[in-house]
Protein backbone atom coordinates (compact mmCIF):
# COMPACT_ATOMS: atom_id res chain seq x y z
CA UNK A 1 0.00 0.00 0.00
CA UNK A 2 2.63 2.49 1.03
CA UNK A 3 6.38 2.35 1.04
CA UNK A 4 8.50 5.02 2.68
CA UNK A 5 12.11 4.86 1.55
CA UNK A 6 15.09 6.63 3.10
CA UNK A 7 12.93 9.63 3.98
CA UNK A 8 14.73 12.78 5.04
CA UNK A 9 12.66 15.85 5.87
CA UNK A 10 13.08 19.26 7.42
CA UNK A 11 11.00 22.10 8.71
CA UNK A 12 12.31 25.67 9.04
CA UNK A 13 15.79 24.42 8.25
CA UNK A 14 15.79 21.78 10.99
CA UNK A 15 16.41 18.26 9.82
CA UNK A 16 13.83 16.08 11.58
CA UNK A 17 13.56 12.84 9.62
CA UNK A 18 16.88 11.17 8.82
CA UNK A 19 16.41 8.11 6.70
CA UNK A 20 13.07 6.66 7.68
CA UNK A 21 12.06 3.37 6.07
CA UNK A 22 8.63 1.84 6.47
CA UNK A 23 6.48 -0.47 4.38
CA UNK A 24 2.82 -0.99 5.12
CA UNK A 25 0.79 -3.54 3.21
CA UNK A 26 -2.95 -3.64 2.57
CA UNK A 27 -4.92 -4.89 5.55
CA UNK A 28 -2.17 -4.01 8.04
CA UNK A 29 -2.17 -1.74 11.04
CA UNK A 30 1.20 -0.35 12.06
CA UNK A 31 1.94 1.65 15.17
CA UNK A 32 4.73 4.14 15.59
CA UNK A 33 5.84 5.04 19.06
CA UNK A 34 8.58 7.34 20.10
CA UNK A 35 9.68 9.93 22.60
CA UNK A 36 8.98 13.65 22.21
CA UNK A 37 10.86 15.20 19.33
CA UNK A 38 11.54 11.92 17.58
CA UNK A 39 9.73 13.08 14.43
CA UNK A 40 6.29 11.50 14.84
CA UNK A 41 4.31 14.64 14.01
CA UNK A 42 6.68 15.57 11.19
CA UNK A 43 6.02 12.22 9.58
CA UNK A 44 2.27 12.93 9.73
CA UNK A 45 2.69 16.36 8.16
CA UNK A 46 4.95 14.95 5.44
CA UNK A 47 2.45 12.23 4.54
CA UNK A 48 -0.33 14.84 4.48
CA UNK A 49 1.72 17.23 2.35
CA UNK A 50 2.00 20.26 4.63
CA UNK A 51 3.69 23.08 2.66
CA UNK A 52 6.07 24.01 5.50
CA UNK A 53 7.59 20.52 5.67
CA UNK A 54 10.08 19.59 2.98
CA UNK A 55 11.35 16.21 1.85
CA UNK A 56 15.08 16.56 1.24
CA UNK A 57 15.76 12.99 0.24
CA UNK A 58 13.90 9.74 -0.23
CA UNK A 59 10.41 8.95 -1.46
CA UNK A 60 6.95 7.89 -0.44
CA UNK A 61 5.52 5.35 -2.85
CA UNK A 62 1.78 4.85 -2.69
CA UNK A 63 -0.38 2.49 -4.73
CA UNK A 64 -2.59 4.41 -7.13
CA UNK A 65 -4.47 2.38 -9.73
CA UNK A 66 -2.19 -0.60 -9.11
CA UNK A 67 0.91 1.48 -9.75
CA UNK A 68 3.39 2.78 -7.24
CA UNK A 69 3.55 6.53 -7.34
CA UNK A 70 5.82 8.89 -5.44
CA UNK A 71 3.42 11.27 -3.73
CA UNK A 72 5.85 13.85 -2.39
CA UNK A 73 5.06 16.33 -5.17
CA UNK A 74 1.30 15.87 -4.95
CA UNK A 75 -0.89 18.57 -3.37
CA UNK A 76 -2.53 17.63 -0.09
CA UNK A 77 -5.97 17.56 -1.73
CA UNK A 78 -4.76 15.19 -4.45
CA UNK A 79 -3.44 12.80 -1.82
CA UNK A 80 -6.77 12.98 0.01
CA UNK A 81 -8.64 12.19 -3.19
CA UNK A 82 -6.46 9.14 -3.65
CA UNK A 83 -7.57 7.89 -0.26
CA UNK A 84 -4.97 9.19 2.18
CA UNK A 85 -6.42 10.50 5.41
CA UNK A 86 -4.82 12.20 8.39
CA UNK A 87 -6.55 12.30 11.75
CA UNK A 88 -4.80 15.23 13.37
CA UNK A 89 -3.46 15.52 16.86
CA UNK A 90 -4.66 19.11 17.03
CA UNK A 91 -7.59 19.58 14.62
CA UNK A 92 -8.03 23.27 13.79
CA UNK A 93 -11.09 25.22 14.87
CA UNK A 94 -12.77 26.98 11.99
CA UNK A 95 -15.46 29.45 13.03
CA UNK A 96 -18.25 30.00 10.52
CA UNK A 97 -17.62 26.76 8.61
CA UNK A 98 -20.42 24.35 9.42
CA UNK A 99 -19.12 20.91 10.40
CA UNK A 100 -21.58 18.85 8.39
CA UNK A 101 -21.57 21.07 5.29
CA UNK A 102 -17.81 20.94 5.26
CA UNK A 103 -17.81 17.16 5.54
CA UNK A 104 -20.32 16.84 2.71
CA UNK A 105 -18.15 19.07 0.49
CA UNK A 106 -15.18 16.87 1.33
CA UNK A 107 -17.09 13.65 0.75
CA UNK A 108 -18.39 14.87 -2.61
CA UNK A 109 -14.93 15.96 -3.74
CA UNK A 110 -13.73 12.41 -3.23
CA UNK A 111 -16.82 10.90 -4.86
CA UNK A 112 -16.35 13.21 -7.80
CA UNK A 113 -12.70 12.27 -8.17
CA UNK A 114 -13.43 8.58 -7.98
CA UNK A 115 -16.22 8.86 -10.51
CA UNK A 116 -18.98 8.11 -8.02
CA UNK A 117 -22.18 10.08 -7.77
CA UNK A 118 -22.26 12.98 -5.34
CA UNK A 119 -24.66 12.81 -2.43
CA UNK A 120 -27.41 15.40 -1.95
CA UNK A 121 -27.79 17.14 1.42
CA UNK A 122 -30.69 15.03 2.66
CA UNK A 123 -29.12 11.67 1.88
CA UNK A 124 -25.86 12.86 3.31
CA UNK A 125 -27.60 13.92 6.49
CA UNK A 126 -28.96 10.39 7.00
CA UNK A 127 -25.61 8.88 6.19
CA UNK A 128 -23.87 11.22 8.62
CA UNK A 129 -26.30 10.59 11.47
CA UNK A 130 -25.87 6.85 11.10
CA UNK A 131 -22.08 7.17 11.39
CA UNK A 132 -22.41 9.57 14.30
CA UNK A 133 -24.28 6.88 16.20
CA UNK A 134 -21.26 4.61 15.91
CA UNK A 135 -19.20 7.25 17.68
CA UNK A 136 -21.99 8.12 20.13
CA UNK A 137 -21.95 11.74 19.00
CA UNK A 138 -24.51 14.33 19.87
CA UNK A 139 -26.94 15.48 17.13
CA UNK A 140 -26.15 19.11 17.77
CA UNK A 141 -22.74 18.54 16.20
CA UNK A 142 -24.36 18.85 12.78
CA UNK A 143 -25.23 22.49 13.32
CA UNK A 144 -21.98 23.61 14.85
CA UNK A 145 -18.96 25.31 13.36
CA UNK A 146 -16.09 22.96 12.67
CA UNK A 147 -14.40 22.10 15.98
CA UNK A 148 -15.39 25.43 17.53
CA UNK A 149 -16.19 24.97 21.22
CA UNK A 150 -15.63 21.24 20.86
CA UNK A 151 -13.94 19.61 23.83
CA UNK A 152 -10.64 17.79 23.22
CA UNK A 153 -12.52 14.49 23.12
CA UNK A 154 -15.16 15.79 20.73
CA UNK A 155 -12.50 17.02 18.33
CA UNK A 156 -10.93 13.57 18.24
CA UNK A 157 -14.28 11.91 17.70
CA UNK A 158 -14.89 14.35 14.89
CA UNK A 159 -11.60 13.34 13.26
CA UNK A 160 -12.56 9.69 13.42
CA UNK A 161 -16.06 10.51 12.16
CA UNK A 162 -14.50 12.15 9.11
CA UNK A 163 -12.33 9.11 8.64
CA UNK A 164 -15.32 6.76 8.74
CA UNK A 165 -17.28 8.95 6.32
CA UNK A 166 -14.45 9.39 3.83
CA UNK A 167 -13.48 5.72 4.05
CA UNK A 168 -9.79 6.15 3.14
CA UNK A 169 -7.43 3.46 1.91
CA UNK A 170 -4.59 4.66 4.07
CA UNK A 171 -5.09 6.54 7.34
CA UNK A 172 -2.66 8.11 9.72
CA UNK A 173 -3.98 8.57 13.25
CA UNK A 174 -1.75 11.10 14.96
CA UNK A 175 -2.03 10.82 18.77
CA UNK A 176 -5.74 10.21 18.50
CA UNK A 177 -5.71 9.03 22.11
CA UNK A 178 -4.54 12.33 23.59
CA UNK A 179 -7.38 14.14 25.30
CA UNK A 180 -9.59 11.05 25.38
CA UNK A 181 -10.81 9.44 28.59
CA UNK A 182 -11.01 5.65 28.77
CA UNK A 183 -14.68 5.44 27.76
CA UNK A 184 -14.22 7.78 24.81
CA UNK A 185 -11.14 5.86 23.75
CA UNK A 186 -13.15 2.65 23.59
CA UNK A 187 -15.82 4.32 21.46
CA UNK A 188 -13.29 5.92 19.12
CA UNK A 189 -11.25 2.70 18.83
CA UNK A 190 -14.42 0.80 18.03
CA UNK A 191 -15.11 3.26 15.22
CA UNK A 192 -11.60 2.82 13.85
CA UNK A 193 -11.74 -0.97 14.12
CA UNK A 194 -14.94 -1.14 12.10
CA UNK A 195 -13.03 0.41 9.26
CA UNK A 196 -10.27 -2.19 9.27
CA UNK A 197 -10.35 -4.44 6.26
CA UNK A 198 -8.02 -6.26 3.93
CA UNK A 199 -8.32 -3.36 1.49
CA UNK A 200 -7.01 -0.60 3.66
CA UNK A 201 -4.16 0.16 5.98
CA UNK A 202 -3.50 2.36 9.00
CA UNK A 203 -0.61 3.98 10.73
CA UNK A 204 -1.31 4.72 14.39
CA UNK A 205 1.05 7.23 15.96
CA UNK A 206 1.00 7.31 19.71
CA UNK A 207 2.95 8.24 22.76
CA UNK A 208 1.44 5.63 25.03
CA UNK A 209 0.69 1.98 24.69
CA UNK A 210 -2.87 2.14 26.05
CA UNK A 211 -4.53 3.00 22.70
CA UNK A 212 -2.97 -0.14 21.27
CA UNK A 213 -5.02 -2.24 23.68
CA UNK A 214 -8.04 -1.11 21.71
CA UNK A 215 -6.59 -0.76 18.22
CA UNK A 216 -4.37 -3.78 18.13
CA UNK A 217 -1.50 -3.31 15.67
CA UNK A 218 0.14 -5.94 13.51
CA UNK A 219 3.49 -4.21 13.79
CA UNK A 220 5.04 -1.71 16.18
CA UNK A 221 7.94 0.59 15.29
CA UNK A 222 10.03 2.79 17.53
CA UNK A 223 10.96 6.15 16.05
CA UNK A 224 13.96 7.95 17.46
CA UNK A 225 16.12 10.70 15.99
CA UNK A 226 14.16 10.70 12.75
CA UNK A 227 14.53 7.03 11.91
CA UNK A 228 13.05 3.73 12.98
CA UNK A 229 15.38 2.09 15.44
CA UNK A 230 13.40 -1.00 16.24
CA UNK A 231 10.44 -2.89 14.82
CA UNK A 232 8.48 -5.72 16.30
CA UNK A 233 5.00 -6.98 17.06
CA UNK A 234 2.58 -5.68 19.66
CA UNK A 235 4.76 -6.94 22.54
CA UNK A 236 7.23 -4.21 21.69
CA UNK A 237 4.66 -1.62 22.73
CA UNK A 238 4.26 -3.35 26.09
CA UNK A 239 8.01 -3.41 26.57
CA UNK A 240 8.18 0.33 25.93
CA UNK A 241 5.36 0.93 28.40
CA UNK A 242 7.31 -1.08 30.93
CA UNK A 243 10.86 0.12 30.36
CA UNK A 244 10.58 3.46 28.54
CA UNK A 245 12.61 4.30 25.45
CA UNK A 246 16.10 4.61 26.86
CA UNK A 247 17.00 0.92 26.62
CA UNK A 248 16.29 1.04 22.89
CA UNK A 249 18.63 3.93 22.22
CA UNK A 250 21.76 1.94 23.13
Amino acid sequence: MIEIKDLHAEVNGNQILRGLNLTIGAGEVHAIMGPNGSGKSTLTKIIGGHPDYHVTRGEILYDINLKKRNIIDMDPEERAREGIFIAFQYPVEIPGVNASEFLRASFNEICHHQGAEEMDPLDFDDFLREKMKVLEMDDKYIHRSLNVDFSGGEKKRNEVLQMIILNPRFSVLDETDSGLDVDSMRVVANGVNRLRSKHNAMLVITHYQRLLNYIVPDFVHILEGGRIIKSGEKDLALAVEDKGYDWLKK
Partner: peptide, 26 residues
Protein backbone atom coordinates in the same frame (compact mmCIF):
# COMPACT_ATOMS: atom_id res chain seq x y z
CA UNK B 1 -6.63 25.88 8.41
CA UNK B 2 -6.05 25.84 4.66
CA UNK B 3 -3.93 22.70 5.01
CA UNK B 4 -6.55 21.01 7.18
CA UNK B 5 -9.23 21.53 4.53
CA UNK B 6 -6.85 20.38 1.80
CA UNK B 7 -6.24 17.10 3.62
CA UNK B 8 -9.99 16.66 3.37
CA UNK B 9 -9.77 16.72 -0.44
CA UNK B 10 -10.83 20.35 -0.76
CA UNK B 11 -8.84 22.30 -3.34
CA UNK B 12 -6.73 25.14 -2.01
CA UNK B 13 -8.80 27.72 -3.91
CA UNK B 14 -12.02 26.31 -2.51
CA UNK B 15 -10.51 26.06 0.94
CA UNK B 16 -9.67 29.75 0.84
CA UNK B 17 -13.16 30.56 -0.37
CA UNK B 18 -14.71 28.37 2.31
CA UNK B 19 -12.60 29.99 5.02
CA UNK B 20 -13.40 33.52 3.94
CA UNK B 21 -17.08 32.66 3.80
CA UNK B 22 -16.64 31.16 7.24
CA UNK B 23 -15.02 34.36 8.44
CA UNK B 24 -18.02 36.29 7.13
CA UNK B 25 -20.58 33.77 8.37
CA UNK B 26 -19.32 34.01 11.91
Amino acid sequence: EIFYLQTRAIQKRDAIKMLSHGFADE
